[in-house]
Amino acid sequence: MNVFRLAGDISHLLAIIILLLKIWTSRSCAGISGKSQVMFAITYTARYLDLFTNFISLYNSTMKIIFLGAAYATLYLIYVRFKATYDHNHDTFRVEFLLIPTVILSVLINHDFSPLEILWTFSIYLESVAILPQLFMVSKTGEAESITSHYLFALGSYRALYIINWVYRYYAEGFYDLIAIVAGVVQTVLYCDFFYLYITKGSRANATEMSIEA
């Protein structure tokens, strides 16, 4: 463990907590893409199957349980509890265009052709594009509530910090995992446009609502 990865995990945890709080306190999931949240739940389920078979550390197991629980709690809030506020009309991204290519790619390019490893690889590829329905929805609605933009900033920062962690681990431990690195770079690049708008929103006129040009 290093400070970059710890900061990344905390940023990730913060993002999930911000999202849960936003939906729970506003009692609405307007502006939130349920499809992205489904992608994330699939990602953590496929990646954390080793929760019971492969003990790394108390921290690792605890965080996995928290991420899984929060992912499904978010799905419950969106699709059950506050279902009436779910914005079907703007959450229209075709997720099959994400699922099919990532499944094919995980079967073609992986470290080991075993079920657990292919599922891990699939979760890495899926996570890198899972935010697309959300970014697409924000661009369609043309704006994001400020709390949603904080969520996206924390979520985007988590994988950016992981990239620094991978650089550190390469030089400090000679460790690197190309699949995770390439997918992590793709994932972070997808946020660049959003990062720019989020950081410059202070200097733009309507600072309250962040408007993303379509």
């Binding site: 995990d9 990730h12 080793d50 790394i56 690792n60 965080m63 991420f67 080991d112 891990w120 995770a180």
Partner: peptide, 10 residues
């Protein structure tokens, strides 16, 4: 070879 891929990251 079946490398036991130990993923220690979240």
């Amino acid at each position: 070879c079946h490398r036991l891929t130990q993923h220690d990251e979240l």
